[in-house]
Design a protein around this nucleic acid. Structure first.
Length: 463
RNA sequence: GGCGCGUUCGUCUAGAGGCCUAGGACGGUUGGUUCUCAACCAACAAAUCACCGGUUCGAAUCCGGUACGCGCUACCA
C-alpha cells in the first residue's frame, strides 16, 4: 500500500492562518496520522501581487500553536524541498514545456486588453466567458520566434473540446464535467510563475501526495487538474472536497462578518484544544455521539467518507461553551500559568492562584478573567450602578465587627440584617457593588477572605 | 447567464427503506439550588426531514423534477 501523505497548501496572502485553513489542516493531519503517514505544509506563493509580509511565518506559527505538527514544510525542510513554490519555478516551466511538446498546452500572446474585450463581448452575447483559442492556431515555430524576440507570453492548457472529465470524490462520489465547458486555463503566467492549477498538480505529484483534501471551492477546477495528470501520465491522487465553513448568513466565512484568523481566537482567550474539538464537529460527528473529545480520540474513529456534505455555519456561541468546558477540565496549576501568560504577566501568579478556584466555572475564555477578577488587583474606578446606602451601612458595620472568615462574616451580616430589618441579599449585593464595582462576580465572602479585612474596609470606609 | 455542489429543530448534527408519534448537543424558556453571576439538576418549546411527483406493503432514507442557498466562472488561490 502506498503511504498516506497529505498536505495543506496555504497562500501567504492573509494576516494569519484562516480558520478554514485550520479546519482543512486538522482533517489532513488526522487522515495522515491515522494511517501513520506524513502531513506536509507547502506554501503556494505564486501570486506575487497579493503576498503579505510575515504571513507564512504566522501561518506556521498558528498551526504549531494549534498542535498540528507537520513532518515537512518550508521551515523544517524535508525530502522534497523546497516547500515554497516560488523556489520551485524551474520545475513548473520544464513541465509546462513538456506539455507544449505533446500538444497539451500552447503559448498565448494575447494582451489583457484583448482578453477583457473578448469576455465583454461573450457576456453580451450570453456566451460562457472562455478563451477563444486564438493563439492555439499559431504555429509552434512562429511562437518560438516571437518568444525569442522577447514578446511576453503565457502558457495555456489545451483542453479537448469533446468528451467529459470525471473524478471520484471520497465525500461526494463521482463528479463529471463536459470538456467543452472547461476553459483553456493559463498554467504559466508571463512572470514565469505557475498558476495554482499547474503548481498543485506538479507539486502534489513530486511530493507524492496521496490524498488531496481541500475546500469545496476547488471542485470546479478539479477537472483541469485531472486533465493535467492525464497529460503527464501520472496517477491521480484520492480527492476529498470538504465543505466550506460559513458565516451565520450562509456566505463563505469571511473576515467582514466573523473573526477568521486563528491568532484572533487565541487573543480572545480560546484554548487550542477547544478550537480543534469544535472544528472537528464541523460536518462530522463522533460515532459515539460524544461532543467532547481530543484529536487523538478523533483519529481512532475518523473516516473521511463519513463527512457531511452540507456546509456548516461556524457558531461562536457553541465554541464559547466548548471553551468553557475545556477551561474547567484543565488542572489549576496549568490554568494559572495560562492566565499568567495570557495577560503577559500583568498579574502576580500567587494572587491568580488564590483567586482562580472562584472563577473556573464562571469563565468561558481566558480573557474573561480580567472582567471577573480585576477587582482583586485594583480598586473599582466606577460603580455599575448607584448604591443603596441603608443596606450597605448594615453590611459595613457587620464586617467591621466581624472576624475575617467566611462563616463569621456570613453570620454577622445575616444577624445584622435581621436586627435592622433589611434583606440579607440586599446587604450582600450592596457590599458587592461597593467593593467590586459590579453586580456580578465570584462569591462575595470567599472573595473578601482573599482580599483581606484591611483592604475591604478601606474600599467601603467612605460610605 | 453557464457549470458544479448542497438542502433534517435558530445553529452543529444522529439517521444508510420498517427500531422515527425524528434522537443528541449549543442556544432559548421555566423551575430547583443560591449573597449576584456562573456551574449543577429537572423540565419545556423548537424540524409537516425544502417542495412536488414517482418506486415500494412501507421513504427523512431510493429515483426524477422544481425552488432556494452556496461555490466556481482571472496571467487569485
Amino acid at each position: 500500500m502506498t503511504p498516506v501523505r497529505t498536505r495543506i497548501a496555504p497562500s501567504p496572502t492573509g494576516l494569519d492562518l484562516h480558520i478554514g485553513n485550520a479546519y482543512t489542516a486538522l482533517i489532513n493531519y488526522v487522515v495522515a496520522k491515522k494511517h501513520k503517514g506524513q502531513f506536509i505544509i507547502r506554501i503556494e506563493d505564486t501570486d506575487r501581487t497579493r503576498l503579505i509580509e510575515g504571513s507564512e511565518q504566522r501561518i506556521v506559527e498558528s498551526l504549531t500553536w494549534l498542535g498540528i505538527p507537520h513532518d515537512e514544510g518550508p521551515d523544517i525542510g524535508g525530502p522534497y524541498a523546497p516547500y515554497r513554490q516560488s523556489e520551485r519555478l524551474g520545475m513548473y516551466k520544464k513541465y509546462a514545456e513538456k506539455l507544449v511538446e505533446n500538444g497539451h498546452a500552447y503559448y498565448c500572446f494575447c494582451s489583457s486588453d484583448r482578453l477583457e474585450a473578448m469576455r465583454k463581448k461573450q457576456e453580451e452575447g450570453h456566451q460562457p466567458p472562455m478563451y477563444d483559442g486564438l493563439c492555439k492556431r499559431i504555429p509552434h515555430e512562429e511562437a518560438i520566434k516571437r518568444i525569442r524576440a522577447g514578446e511576453k507570453y503565457v502558457m495555456r492548457l489545451n483542453v479537448p473540446d469533446t468528451g467529459t472529465t470525471t473524478f471520484h470524490d471520497l465525500i461526494r462520489g463521482d463528479i463529471s464535467f463536459e470538456n467543452k465547458l472547461i476553459d483553456d486555463q493559463v498554467i504559466l503566467k508571463s512572470d514565469g510563475y505557475p498558476t495554482y492549477h499547474l503548481g498543485v498538480v506538479v507539486d502534489d505529484h513530486e511530493m507524492k501526495i496521496s490524498h488531496v483534501i481541500r475546500g469545496e471551492e476547488w471542485i470546479s477546477s478539479t477537472p483541469k487538474h485531472i486533465l493535467l495528470y492525464q497529460f503527464f501520465g501520472w496517477d491521480v491522487p484520492v480527492y476529498a472536497h470538504l465543505s466550506v465553513l460559513r458565516n451565520p448568513d450562509k456566505s463563505k466565512l469571511s473576515k467582514r462578518k466573523n473573526p477568521v484568523w486563528v491568532g484572533e481566537y487565541r487573543k480572545r482567550g480560546f484554548l487550542k484544544d477547544a478550537m480543534l474539538n469544535y472544528l472537528a464537529l464541523m460536518a462530522w460527528s463522533h460515532p459515539s455521539g460524544k461532543e467532547l473529545f481530543s484529536v487523538k480520540e478523533m483519529m481512532e474513529v475518523f473516516d473521511l467518507s463519513q463527512i457531511q456534505t452540507t456546509a456548516p455555519v461556524f457558531d461562536q456561541e457553541k465554541l464559547r461553551w466548548m471553551n468553557g468546558e475545556y477551561l474547567r477540565k484543565i488542572q489549576n496549576s496549568e490554568f494559572r500559568i495560562q492566565i499568567y501568560e495570557f495577560f503577559k504577566r500583568k498579574y502576580p501568579i500567587e494572587m491568580i492562584e488564590k483567586v482562580l478556584p472562584l472563577l473556573t466555572e464562571r469563565m468561558k475564555t481566558l480573557a474573561e478573567f480580567e472582567s471577573l477578577a480585576g477587582f482583586f488587583f485594583e480598586r473599582p474606578k466606577e460603580y455599575e450602578r448607584p448604591l443603596k446606602v441603608t443596606p450597605l451601612k448594615v453590611g459595613i458595620e457587620a464586617l467591621t465587627e466581624s472576624e475575617w472568615n467566611h462563616d463569621a462574616m456570613e453570620k454577622a451580616i445575616r444577624d445584622a440584617s435581621d436586627k435592622e430589618g433589611v434583606q440579607a441579599k440586599d446587604v450582600f449585593m450592596e457590599l458587592r457593588v461597593a467593593i467590586t464595582g459590579k453586580t456580578v462576580g465570584p462569591p462575595l465572602l470567599e472573595s473578601l477572605e482573599i482580599l483581606g479585612k484591611t483592604e475591604t474596609l478601606e474600599r467601603i470606609s467612605n460610605w
